[in-house]
Design a protein around this nucleic acid. Structure first.
Lengths: 341, 341
DNA sequence: CGGCGTATTCAAAGCGCTTTCAACCGGTCG
DNA sequence: CGACCGGTTGAAAGCGCTTTGAATACGCCG
């Protein structure tokens, strides 16, 4: 069913039908109802391409999907996607994934922009100094960054307070008497990891505790990395009495290493991990339950979608969009007073 | 830069320029070169919507993204997506994620089809009896199913041999002398889980071993489920001496439960898990290394993309596309002879 | 009663491509 | 020498929608 046919069925012009369907005010109420009814009856759907061509809007937002780097290829990413989807669904906006070999990403963004496949894009996990920001700005393609770069920050972004989260978490451990605290971080070329590192150091400094660099490590946020780094930390003497871990996935590995070392979590050693609130990694379901710094990445996705739409509609200036979300510190059973000896 | 401008810059008609760019044969070689050069110089990109409208092809394939059910929201899904992307990238085909509340999925497929946003769609993790197959067939929207439904199988599908995988794995355990084998499965409303169940039972039956239904369980494939089911199994007497697990994620939980019970994997109890080959869940990196049934879900994604394109091009009939991939059984350190007592 | 504002509808002109269909230009063939 | 042909190019007609500009009808005012 095409607009043309629908119109002739109704004995109306395409113009009127189009207006009726798109909610323009200059249509007689009765006529509009007739049109709406007919549209439903015939299951009429405007052709997406035609509409896009006519309006100049793509009705889609873009994500560049790096296929060979596994940075984004983790559970966080899907959860974020789901969040985006939740919001975009309401306006029937699609998400366009543009696959791209890493290194080729810039070209992919350019392609998206120039061929106007999307109205805006999302930039995730920015590096400390990320060239994509400049590119997108130059291309004039609206975008929201999930996270932040180092500086300057004259673009639209939404980030969680990674610095504060890890500062508070570290402080909590310090208050419990811990002095040997290990940091198992994500890769510090990403800004969020750097922020966590800062927060960690700031807390120790505030307590007059010196950072032992042998207890600071980073890597891909996997179970494996968590295991390896923890095993290494536990071999140090004096052994750390607490760990700050950058992801739940890593904490699973860490937990294995702790058990393998014959230690008991929450008594011999404490642990706080960052939790993006992923359905199949539930800190309450762990044994013992895991203390976390918590911020729903899904909620962030939803909000980013919202911001994106405001941006596209021209309701907001990019530079006016800066959201820094506070992070909850949720104390559960994996943290306890520092063991004395 | 638009086609029109490019053409006038070159002193040619749009027709010729379009043909030159799209590789039609009736263009003079020299002219084509000029056009190609100019296109590059001006960084010309055809407008996606216009091209789509003109050709009737959307240049995109669709995936319905269920936002509230977490079925697909797991690492497997992303890995599969990456595989798809790897192939689609070559032809600059986009992936369109259409978010949809579950229950509303059918409507979303219908919308995708009727508004011709995509040329084809992928149907993942089909239920044993999945209404989506009939819908898509009726809509005439080309699709490839990743997995299979119960029957009939008169559509395009690619699946791994889940039945064979678990049959072999169970047989291996039986050959090692295990008689009390537990099955920790995904939800059997999905066909893959049902197939695994069948394979498991077939192997036991072939060995004349009776299935103890208290050692058969299913659930969402998460760490938590793995932990809980394993803990329950280990409380049975006589205790199982081996476990067959449906995902690596579950196996992490299972491993925790095993350790918590004071057992040693590979000696007191054996385990084989299914591995979709996910970068951050590496069975070789586990301690002890984990025996698996292995099949790369990413490779499957790539192949599905390939099939999809053949389908769209009309090169293949849907019913001619049936691929059943064999699954490797990789024995590592988590499997050993059944303990005697 | 003529003029005018308002409400409603429509014809037609795009949007930027692809793709007929026609035209043109040597050159070849009978 | 004219018909014909392969090679090459172009004008124009869509693709299915939105939107501008104009037309029509009606009611109200002076």
């Amino acid at each position: 069913m095409r607009l043309k046919e629908l119109a002739s069925h109704l004995g109306l012009s395409q113009t009127t039908v189009s207006r009726a369907l798109n909610g323009y005010p200059e249509v007689n109420a009765e006529t509009r109802q007739r049109v709406l009814d007919a549209a439903r009856r015939y299951d009429y759907r405007p052709n997406a391409s035609a509409r896009r061509l006519a309006t100049g809007r793509a009705g889609a937002i873009g994500i560049v999907l790096p296929t060979d780097r596994n940075m984004l290829l983790d559970p966080h990413y899907v959860e974020f996607q789901a969040g985006l989807g939740e919001r975009l669904m309401k306006d029937e906006i699609d998400i366009v994934l543009s696959p791209s070999r890493s290194g080729d990403e810039m070209a992919t963004y350019r392609r998206m922009a120039v061929s106007s496949r999307v109205d805006a894009v999302i930039l995730s996990s920015p590096a400390v100094d990320d060239p994509r920001v400049a590119l997108l700005t130059e291309l004039g393609l609206p975008f929201v960054v999930h996270g932040r770069t180092g500086s300057p920050l004259d673009y639209a972004w939404l980030d969680i307070d990674n610095e504060g989260a890890f500062r508070h978490a570290a402080k909590h451990l310090l208050d419990l008497g811990h002095r040997r605290i290990g940091l198992i971080n994500g890769e510090t070329r990403h800004n969020f990891a750097l922020d966590r590192d800062r927060g960690f150091r700031a807390a120790l400094a505030a307590h007059g505790v010196e950072v032992d660099e042998r207890l600071v490590a980073e890597g891909v946020m996997s179970d494996e990395t968590g295991y390896r780094i923890t095993a290494r930390f536990l071999a140090e003497r004096p052994r750390p009495t607490a760990l700050l871990v950058s992801s739940m996935m890593m904490s699973l590995g860490a937990l294995r290493a702790i058990r393998a070392a014959g230690l008991e979590l929450g008594r011999d050693i404490s642990m706080i991990a960052h939790d993006d609130v992923i359905p199949f990694l539930n800190p309450d379901a762990m044994v013992p339950t895991l203390s976390t710094t918590r911020s729903s990445i899904r909620a962030a996705g939803t909000r980013v979608a919202e911001l994106l739409m405001e941006l596209v509609a021209g309701d907001r200036a990019p530079a006016s969009i800066h959201e820094l979300w506070p992070v909850d510190l949720v104390i559960r059973a994996s943290t306890g007073p520092a063991p004395r000896n």
